[in-house]
Each structure stands twice: as C-alpha cells, then as structure tokens.
Design a protein around this nucleic acid. Structure first.
Length: 189
DNA sequence: CTTAGGATCGCCT
DNA sequence: GGCGATCCTAAGC
C-alpha cells in the first residue's frame, strides 16, 4: 500500500490517472486558491515532458517523491506549478493549468492587477501569479503548509483533449478539464 | 474574434 | 547561444 495519498488521491499512480482525478480538487496556497478545473499529464517517456531528458538541476523535483510540487519558470516570465506523481525516481507530473477562484479573491486580484474573475487563474502562469507561487515552492510537500489540498465532493464530468503549447507528442490526449467550466484557459473541443 | 510579435531569464547543448 | 509545458497588447479583419 502506498502512503502517498493526499486529498483522496494516490499520487504514486500514473500521471494521466492522477491528472483526471485532480479535476474538482481544491488547492490552496497560504489559504488562497480554489477548485482545479484544468490539468495536463507529463510522463518520463514523453517527448513533451521536462523529464524526458532525464534528471537535471531544473527538473529534479519531478524525480523526487510523489505528492510534492515541481515549480519552473517559463519563457523567463511565468512560474508554472506541477504535482509530482508515480513512484519516486520515475519522473512524472501533472501541470496545473486552471483553477476556479474561490478563496482569497481580493488577494488574487491585487496580485494579478485585474478584476475579471475568469482571468485570475485561467492558465498555468496566471494561477501561479494569483496564488503567489514562485521558485521557493519547488519540491515542497503538498501535504503541508503553505499547500492545502481538499478532496472533491460528489462526482464531476471530466473532458480530455490534446495538450497546449507543446511541439512534441501534440496528439496525446493528456489534457483534462471540468466539463463546461468557464475557468479553463481554452475550451475543449 | 483572431493573430502576430515582443517580453525576459534560467536551463541545457 | 538558443529556446521554451506562456501571457499580454495591439492591430487587422
């Protein structure tokens, strides 16, 4: 049995499975956050994944224990948050791409410098700005503060499609979303 | 509504 | 030295 269960999710499972189960889960960072509505899975044997080239200084957290954060900087501007999964050493994760803002709306608006609720956390860079996630959160456990995960209540309808913003393995349908949510970064087809 | 271009920095070759 | 799991703005249709 695994002891990598947080908010009802076994993070030692394969990335696509963890990704699908994360839809509807609430994530808070220092008490600010909301419900996850969009994620993408990335695996070790996946040309689109940072882990594909093996363990490096940048991606080492992906090869650490599951249920921890992997935070990286994209295009020198945007921080992006991943949840590490599979067994320790495997190198897989789930990119958090969209959150429905629920707690700490004022702080999110201040950090983002805008009012529109739909644009606060719709996109991996946007949600990190809204939640205040930076490099300092890399490799931290999701089971302890500043993170807090809460299980989803009831059932959710999950839709899937190809991932966004990648140049390899563009047809792999490892992007998952909450059906009909207005808070996804781009609509599902 | 869609698209093109620029911003800006750490990582990898 | 090149480029990226992105976002914003401005311009065009």
């Amino acid at each position: 049995m695994s002891n990598h269960v947080i908010a009802g999710i076994d993070f030692s499972a394969p990335a696509p499975q963890v990704a699908r189960r994360l839809i509807g889960v609430t994530v808070l960072v220092n008490g600010v956050g909301g419900r996850i509505v969009e994620v993408e899975a990335y695996d070790r044997e996946d040309p689109a994944s940072h882990a594909f080239v093996g363990k490096t200084q940048r991606n080492f957290a992906m090869f650490g224990p599951p249920g921890h954060a992997y935070v990286y900087l994209s295009h020198g501007i945007h921080w992006c948050l991943n949840f590490v999964c599979c067994e320790e050493g495997h190198g897989a994760g789930v990119l958090i791409r969209g959150i429905e803002p629920l707690v700490g709306l004022d702080q999110m608006r201040a950090r983002r410098g805008m009012e529109d609720e739909r644009l606060l956390c719709s996109g991996p860079g946007r949600l990190c700005q809204a939640l205040g996630v930076t490099r300092e959160y890399n490799a931290l456990s999701l089971a302890a503060l500043p993170f807090r995960l809460e299980p989803r209540r009831g059932r959710v309808q999950v839709v899937a499609g190809p991932r966004i913003g990648i140049s390899k393995a563009v047809d792999v349908p490892w992007r998952f979303g909450l059906a009909a949510s207005p808070f996804v970064s781009r609509p599902f087809r």
